[in-house]
Write a protein that binds this DNA or RNA. Structure first.
Lengths: 132, 132, 132, 132
DNA sequence: GTGGTCTAGACCACG
DNA sequence: GTGGTCTAGACCACA
């Protein structure tokens, strides 16, 4: 695990799972949370690669997925920009939230838990976290 | 997606993700839910591989993980058996439930959701599912 | 997608594909449809670039292609003018129409469609459009 | 332009446009036309790369797009296979045919042609081709 | 054997 | 300067 800074953005990278997925996940998160605003430019492929000390192709791979997610757009010769459409971002978040929830419930059910158990369990965990 | 039968046990396999993980997940589930009872023998690597029409190495890989989970024990010359310790299984379930929940919450937070939002969201989904 | 005005001419620009091609395509269209008359002056590179808020090199690139198409002529010290030859424009339209049709048919055939299928398909689409 | 053979399949490659797009387009066509049957294995990345004398990464790029199109599926350790779903392939063909037609009509309209003119023009061309 | 990830470094089109 | 394509060659997980 390793922390690195790109402009005002902070990234952590961890060898042992695909680098491009880590970059992708963290960019998605930054955009979803609004840490990079609507229509804003994101770091160029080369800048990102240089700051994270990884290969430009690896960054590019992540950026192409971001675009497929509908979260970014390329502008020729200018760079890559977050979409200016709020609904695009909302759709993305809804889609991912549904996926995460679906697979969470499936995993828990496979352990033999009932929907009620799962709900109680999560409620308890969230309350504990809330008190921290 | 493809359904296959091994003795009284039913498996589904899907070529889009690691086979050994699928076998592992389904064995874990069968044990956690008691479909294979405490101390019961599980199918041999060869039998499993033959019935599922997959490579024995793949089954072996899954079985090794099961043993590492503390869910099974090998008995020389007799085969592999589910542990007879209830607490062993309980620990396993608790550990996995905690892991799943942890990573679910992390994913949802990365989408910019608050703990409250997540709780409400899950409550809603569970209610919908309950009505089906 | 973005709409911009140059004199009486209206342009739309979209950052997802080469800017110079968009300018070129729209100038071609304006000339082919007679929106800019025979022998008329077209906006200077500088004016165009300024109004469209794009780089003059980009406009220049498009204008060079226009001239290669035989649709415009440069007059020293006066600017660029649409050709006054009707046949010149007609040749251009015929050439382009043939090219478009050729590559359309090729693409459709590559999908495994027969000439008959293609004709029926296009007939249907055109009828639908006609009714709007 | 260069003709190369991969197993029973024939490919032509042409430097001057992206190699991976050429491989992609030709694989799409082979699948759409049924030259590679439902559920059949397509050449491995390495085999294709070797026969076409291009880099495996380039072939991989094309194959990933094929999978995104829903035309193929990977099976771990076994290779890449054409989908066995006829409807998947049909959807793909319909989608692409609509795209091609849409952009063809747009291009022709930009030349100042009416829908009627376009229809007549295409009818004429198709008849000529039919006589060959 | 299969596909997948990563690197280093080259060259191109676009603005 | 931007992103995009391509190569050569390494190493990994999976079956």
């Amino acid at each position: 695990m390793d922390k690195r800074q790109v402009g005002t953005l902070s990234f952590s990278i961890d060898f042992g799972q695909p680098l491009y997925e880590q970059v992708l996940a963290q960019m998605r998160s930054l955009i979803a949370k609004g840490a990079i605003g609507l229509g804003e430019k994101i770091p160029s492929v080369r800048e990102m690669a240089h700051e994270l000390r990884i290969n430009p192709n690896t960054v590019m791979h992540a950026y192409q997925e971001l675009e497929r997610d509908g979260l970014t757009e390329k502008r020729r010769g200018q760079g890559t920009f977050v979409t200016s459409s709020v609904t695009q971002i909302k759709h993305f978040k809804d889609r991912l939230a549904a996926e995460y929830t679906e697979s969470f419930l499936e995993n828990m059910c496979n352990l033999g838990l009932e929907l009620n158990d799962i709900h109680n369990f999560l409620t308890k965990i969230i309350q504990e976290k809330g008190h921290r």
